[in-house]
């Protein structure tokens, strides 16, 4: 890789990283697992002057339980999440989803915080994060706050994160029996369509990724669901502007969204 010249700074604490973001503003970017930032730097599409490495900040790579939530540090790798007994026991659908991401190399380096902050419209996590009603814990120089998953994803590579904030953890409510099913893009294996469905007290919650500019809660499906998966899944793209690309036209993608929503609902049992 021969990127444009940049300064590399390894942060040893969240406050140091945030201080560097404040100092360098738009010229600085955060590096964790590197699976979103590095490819764009390699192609020189992205030329940050300062790269702040948050990958080794102590305390950001632990997984724990907090009452009814599983709390996952932002620097946890996909492999860690896929193999964590806490995640498997508390919210197994997230562990199963992590297992579907990329390949072994990607899962050993890529992190949940990096993936969520990058907000690739075809990423796997957002569907589950949305369906499970997770909260994203972020920190800026002004302090900490939490953002509901439904408020987090705003558009293509666009989130509710401020430019001087970073994700520190994800709080995922425990659930059982959730499913994540995806139709993989044959080259990248990202989701052409990915559907997460989780049972809750009032019925089901459904998150869809790959379909639109950003992942979304399929609330029309949720409210229509009364046990008839096919009828509810017909609402999978209600009110959504469906993307089209070389691998799936918007017509086909909308169809897939319905098929995978139906399959996910049926798999819930």
């Amino acid at each position: 890789m021969i990127p444009a010249k940049f300064e590399y700074i390894k942060a040893s604490s969240v406050s140091e990283a945030l201080g560097l973001l404040d100092k360098h503003g738009d010229e600085a970017q955060l590096l964790s697992g590197g699976h979103s930032l590095i490819p764009t730097m390699k192609l020189r599409l992205n030329q940050p002057k300062v790269v702040v490495d948050i990958g080794k900040i102590p305390g950001l790579n632990s997984i724990s339980e907090d009452g009814s939530n599983v709390v996952i540090g932002a620097n946890c790798t996909h492999h860690q999440i896929a193999t964590s007994s806490v995640v498997q026991g508390g919210v197994n659908v997230l562990a199963q989803t992590a297992k579907e991401i990329g390949d072994i190399q990607v899962r050993n380096k890529g992190t949940i915080g990096g993936s969520l902050a990058h907000a690739d419209p075809a990423a796997d996590y957002p569907a589950v994060i949305l369906a499970s009603g997770a909260k994203i814990e972020v920190e800026g120089s002004g302090g900490k706050r939490t953002i509901d998953a439904t408020d987090f994803f705003l558009g293509i590579f666009e989130t509710a994160l401020e430019s001087n904030e970073m994700i520190t953890a994800v709080h995922v409510p425990k659930s059982s029996g959730g499913v994540y099913l995806k139709f993989s893009q044959p080259a990248s294996r990202f989701a052409v369509v990915g559907c997460a469905a989780i049972k809750n007290d009032s019925g089901v919650s459904v998150g869809l990724t790959g379909v639109a500019g950003c992942a979304y809660r399929a609330s029309a499906v949720e409210s229509a669901y009364n046990g008839d998966a096919k009828a509810a899944a017909a609402h999978a793209v209600d009110g959504v502007e469906v993307m089209g690309d070389n691998f799936a036209s918007s017509k086909y993608r909308a169809h897939l969204a319905k098929v995978f929503t139906e399959r996910a609902l049926n798999a819930l049992g």
Binding site: P186, A187, F190, N246
Partner: peptide, 28 residues
């Protein structure tokens, strides 16, 4: 089943990486 180099109407290659050009893999 998988591969193909595509150019758009302006002659830009839209399959210029392994993220966009579907090479077969063992599990195919």
């Amino acid at each position: 089943l998988l591969e193909g180099v595509d150019y758009d109407e302006n002659g830009q290659m839209i399959t210029g990486s392994f993220m966009d050009y579907a090479m077969p893999r063992a599990d195919d």
